[in-house]
């Protein structure tokens, strides 16, 4: 077996997610991504089950694997017990490990996710605390979201939250000792490695693309680019 297929096999999600596909299309029929992107989970499974290294590498470097929305509807239905969405996760994971993800527009976005949600996790102990979902980066959240953010103390108090204070309650501050434990878990379980891979390959790509890159934060050209750029080549053919 080839190198990439071996790497995939190390992922339990891959072992669980790939049995034998008979190309029936039940997954694609109800896949939200197949409806709104040039995407066909059936074809992904079919490609992977050929074990053709060149094709698998092409897939890992492609836009395709980044279209899945992880709703897992494919798992409910597959008459052969495959889970395309889990195979996709395994493909994405290897793609990031080897740096292939920066070859595609959608893959490069991993950098934006790492710098937002990824950092929130270790900084606040939660993925999307109210104050980290800024109206500037989320205009689609509407005027009410701007209002909540402008009046966050009063709103959270009214709703019984414990905003950025010690003790229990929603929106509470996570104690440093708990954040430290989270950090050590990331250390022993490969979480930091993945963050570092994403940073390293993204920095290299930014350089290749001639874009400004900063070691931290969202205020740099490469971040803005991957966060906002859409070539328009992803949906209807």
């Amino acid at each position: 077996m080839g190198k990439l297929y071996d790497l995939l096999l190390q992922d339990v999600r891959f072992k669980e997610g790939l049995n034998a596909c008979m190309n029936c299309g039940v997954c694609t029929a109800i896949c939200p991504a197949a409806e709104f992107y040039k995407y066909d989970p059936r074809e992904i499974i079919d490609t992977v089950q050929t074990k053709d290294e060149a094709k698998i590498e092409a897939l890992m470097r492609s836009e395709t694997i980044w279209y899945c929305g992880q709703c897992m509807s494919c798992k409910t239905r597959c008459p052969r017990g495959n889970t395309p969405a889990m195979v996709v996760m395994a493909l994405r994971s290897v793609s990031q490990k080897l740096g292939y993800f920066t070859d595609s527009e959608k893959g490069r976005q991993q950098f934006a996710i790492k710098r937002t949600v990824g950092e929130n996790i270790l900084k606040y102990g939660y993925c999307v605390p109210t104050y980290a979902v800024t109206p500037e980066m989320h205009p689609e959240q509407g005027p009410i979201w701007s209002y909540i953010n402008e009046n966050i103390e009063e709103v959270m108090e009214r709703l019984g939250a414990n905003l950025r204070k010690p003790g229990p309650g929603s929106m509470r501050e996570i104690h440093q000792s708990n954040l430290d434990e989270l950090d050590r878990i990331f250390e022993v379980s490969g979480g930091h490695n993945l963050y570092n891979d994403i940073e390293r390959f993204s920095e290299k790509k930014a350089d290749e693309m001639g874009m400004e890159f900063k070691k931290e934060g969202t205020d740099n050209e490469y971040f803005r680019h991957v966060y906002t750029f859409n070539s328009g080549n992803h949906s209807r053919e």
Binding site: G25, V26, A29, I30
Partner: peptide, 26 residues
Amino acid sequence: GRLSEANETIDKRIVIKVEDTLTSRP
């Protein structure tokens, strides 16, 4: 294409959802 799910419309007709596998589109 194999049936993935069927749903009822408000006038009791049935919506069939499959992949048209030979065009790779739902």
